[in-house]
Design a protein around this nucleic acid. Structure first.
Lengths: 120, 120
DNA sequence: ACCGTAGTACGAGAGCTGTCAAACTACGAG
DNA sequence: CTCGTAGTTTGACAGCTCTCGTACTACGGT
């Protein structure tokens, strides 16, 4: 929101697929891993960008890096650097434009299943 | 070897997951393959059970068998034998009960993408 | 009884995936 | 400058996935 759109010297760049490069198969594949589905669920609940370090995943840092890259390269999340932190946010608008209702139904399904398996 | 064991009386039986054994991750993974997404799309369009041989997939018969098994074991389709043919049908009701809206949004997304990529 | 059609089973191979450990880079705070 | 924190890179490894070809079984018709 606030300006500083210069990337402020952070030369580290991140590749993101354009809208028309996002493939349904890729999105589904990205979401079909438990760890990544969990990341996406938390990201959706947060309604805001989150640092990778926010997530307390039961895997090492390098594995975490791997999962975030799969999510980014499939077009599910958008990432950017802010200081030493790497912020991640759902590409909700892009996904809704491309595949209306898909993200919501997957999130709903994930919540439903979590309730069914955990809370019941 | 030695097919001496069971054979369960009547004809060839097929394993299907119960409703509460179907996992969202498994369904998403099953749908994330182009060949299987295509099968599911045609199955949905048909609104009826189809024989494996109906599909003219650009792969061999053994690969076709493999894909149908993945779809069945993940809970996406139901299969049964009718004569020498093996009929397959979407488990629409089960999936809708478990993950409301998911199947429709995936099918819609697939149709949209097909139109976007093919119809120019 | 035979044959053809529909699908299965069994290897097998190339390639991808999830995971780790260890060494590394980038940034901000003292 | 030095240090700690956040994340990356590389290499490795087991396991899975998609694909094939060949050999096999099951069923129905002639």
């Amino acid at each position: 929101m606030t300006p500083a759109t210069k990337s402020t010297g952070s030369s580290r760049t991140l590749e993101h697929p354009e809208l028309d490069e996002i493939r349904l198969e890729g999105v589904l594949h990205a979401l079909s891993d438990p760890m990544r589905l969990r990341i996406v669920t938390e990201l959706a609940a947060a309604e805001d960008e989150l640092a990778c370090s926010y997530f307390e995943l039961p895997v090492t840092k390098s594995t975490t890096t791997h999962h975030f890259r799969v999510l980014r390269e499939s077009g599910v999340i958008r990432q950017s650097y802010r200081g030493t932190a790497k912020m991640s946010g759902l590409r909700r608008d892009d996904l809704d434009a491309l595949f209306p209702g898909l993200l919501d139904s997957v999130l709903g399904a994930a919540a439903r299943q979590a309730g069914r398996l955990g809370g019941a």
